[in-house]
């Protein structure tokens, strides 16, 4: 960027009143004055030195947007700082040229005026015009050099490949992290697969008893139903459970404690059937329906307990 420090253009404004706003100097820092093509931008910096109390009237500033048919003001920044008894207003103007010249040509950004307001009146500062040399970016008649429309038009710029990889990596990393946390939670809560669900022998026994009586309802079915419940007691207790162990068993498994009487009846009936060889007494003492009921109750309590 060619930095041209243009000498101060001082306007001695015809002062009608001594207390009017005071524009002491206008400095411009101009960009290079040549080598512009259609669509190029240029940035001008203008410093206006005024009296300490003076302000720029915002309404007098150039408007952003199209200035004329070929020039557009893209942006305008205004800042002001105080330096001693003066105030420096710094204007940064960004223009874009849309001039499409046929051959190199000078165009001029016209001068404009800015109103400075002081405590007792206004003053005008003039932004100087700026002349720049703009050039065409293509031949006017490319056919002359043997080019066709196909070769003459530059290929479209390939679209920039924006990387979505970061987002994807982040998503994957977070998913992995969530998975790991879920595993930790599952371990803490003893969810599958960290705790195999405790076996539910009574549920299985209830099912087997149902099957046994569904098939037939004779003595053999009753015996196998008794056996099924015995095996359930065995695996719940972790050892073979005899009738005399019932008290210990119920103390260790308080969830079944309410069925004390029923369990005792079951063991008594089983004893009659298997060791007293009195199947009928056993069945009368503890009918199949009661047996089914006890198995179902125990299964329910077992589900509730674990």
């Amino acid at each position: 960027m060619l930095r041209a420090a243009v000498a101060a253009v001082s306007f001695l404004v015809a002062a009608t009143q001594a207390a009017k706003a005071e524009v002491r100097a206008v400095h411009t820092v101009e960009p290079r004055a040549f080598g512009y093509f259609l669509g190029d931008t240029l940035e001008r910096t203008i410093e206006i030195e005024t009296g300490a109390e003076d302000e720029i009237v915002a309404a007098s500033l150039p408007r952003t947007g199209a200035s004329n048919y070929w020039l557009e003001l893209r942006s305008l920044d205004l800042s002001s700082t105080r330096e001693g008894d003066a105030r420096i207003h710094r204007l940064r103007l960004t223009y874009q040229t849309f001039y499409a010249p046929i051959d190199p040509k000078k165009v001029t950004i016209p001068a404009s005026e800015i109103t400075i307001r002081g405590p007792a009146g206004s003053e005008t500062a003039t932004l100087p015009p700026f002349t720049l040399l703009t050039s065409p970016i293509r031949e006017i008649f490319p056919e002359k050099s043997g080019e066709t429309a196909e070769t003459f038009l530059r290929p479209d710029a390939t679209p920039g490949l924006r990387r979505s990889g970061n987002l994807r990596s982040a998503a994957l990393a977070l998913a992995a992290l969530s998975g790991a946390l879920l595993l930790l939670l599952a371990r803490d809560m003893a969810w599958w697969p960290f705790s195999r669900r405790p076996a539910r022998p009574f549920s299985r026994a209830a099912r087997e008893i149902g099957h046994a009586f569904a098939k037939e309802s004779n003595g053999a079915a009753y015996k196998s139903a008794l056996l099924a419940l015995h095996r359930a007691f065995d695996s719940t207790a972790g050892q073979r459970l005899l009738a005399s162990d019932v008290e210990t068993f119920l103390a260790a498994h308080p969830e079944h404690n309410r069925n004390h009487a029923e369990v005792a009846r079951f063991f008594a009936a089983s004893r009659a059937v298997f060791f007293g060889e009195a199947q009928r007494e056993g069945e009368i003492e503890f009918p199949p329906a009661d047996l089914k009921g006890l198995a179902a109750t125990l299964a329910r309590q077992e589900r509730a307990a674990r």
Partner: peptide, 8 residues
């Protein structure tokens, strides 16, 4: 023995 052998 008594914990293992099934009864009845």
């Amino acid at each position: 023995l008594f914990e293992t052998v099934p009864v009845p």
